[in-house]
Every structure is written in structure tokens, then in C-alpha cells.
């Protein structure tokens, strides 16, 4: 007979307890000001020239905000996509494959964006 505590120690079927739930809320809170920043950055740079864009992103405050957004959004994206997949993809193999692809996608978005922002910031 498993006691309630033993069951809690097992931390549920994912063995991670509420880690993803908490991480999704944390990134959601961080994403609020950063999303406002991104949307403002998009609408104020419609049709901006190459040099305007470069100097905008090379600004340290802008670069750090963009890096924070990409990191936080990629984590949030990965958890969110995984949740959708787990609800709608029922075959075990297809489900795992979809989660692997979603993780690669989120990581790819993050790495490519971070590389680009760092490259622009360092001016090379």
C-alpha cells in the first residue's frame, strides 16, 4: 500500500511534479512586458532601412530585451506545444516524435535568433 506521501514523492506520472506548470507561469509573466516591447518594436520599424534596424538591435538594452524574450518565449513555446501534442496525438510513437520535433523547433528558433542578435551586437 502506497501512502499519500509516497505517492507525492513519485511526483505524478511525469515524475516532475508541478515543474512545467510553474515554469509556464514564470515564463508567461516574463513574456508580458517583453511581448509589449516586441509588438511595439515591430510596428515602429515597418519599412525601416538596414542601418536603422542594425543600430536598433545593436543598442544593448534592445539586444538584452530581445535575448530575454527569445529565451523565455522558446521555453514557453516548448511546454505549450508539448501540452497540445499530449492532448491530441494519441499514438505513443507519433506523440514522442512530435514532442522531439517541437523541442528541436523551439531550440532551433532560440539558437538562430540568439546567434543573430549576438552577431549584430558585436558588429561582425
Amino acid at each position: 500500500m502506497a501512502t499519500p506521501l509516497a505517492r507525492v514523492r513519485g511526483l505524478g506520472s511525469a515524475h516532475k511534479g508541478t515543474e512545467n506548470f510553474w515554469r509556464q507561469r514564470l515564463t508567461a509573466i516574463v513574456n508580458i512586458p517583453l511581448t509589449i516591447f516586441l509588438v511595439l518594436a515591430i510596428v515602429t520599424h515597418l519599412g525601416a532601412s538596414y542601418h536603422e534596424m542594425r543600430s536598433f538591435i545593436a543598442n544593448p538594452a534592445v539586444a538584452i530585451a530581445l535575448l530575454a524574450l527569445i529565451l523565455s518565449a522558446a521555453l514557453h513555446m516548448r511546454i505549450g506545444l508539448k501540452e497540445i501534442i499530449e492532448d491530441y496525438v494519441h499514438g505513443e510513437g507519433a506523440k514522442i516524435a512530435a514532442i522531439v520535433l517541437a523541442t528541436i523547433y523551439a531550440a532551433g528558433i532560440a539558437l538562430a535568433s540568439i546567434y543573430a542578435i549576438v552577431k549584430i551586437s558585436l558588429g561582425s
Binding site: Y50, G80, Y115, A116, I120
Partner: peptide, 19 residues
């Protein structure tokens, strides 16, 4: 949420192009 995941590809494309 899923649309945003696709939208971030646009943002990435834009950043990579500037770089």
C-alpha cells in the same frame, strides 16, 4: 499559442537576415 510558435519563425528569419 501555436500561431505564435510559427510567428517566431518570422522574427528569427528577420533577425538572421539583419545579421
Amino acid at each position: 499559442g501555436a500561431a505564435n510558435a510559427v510567428g517566431f519563425l518570422l522574427l528569427t528569419w528577420w533577425l538572421v537576415a539583419i545579421a
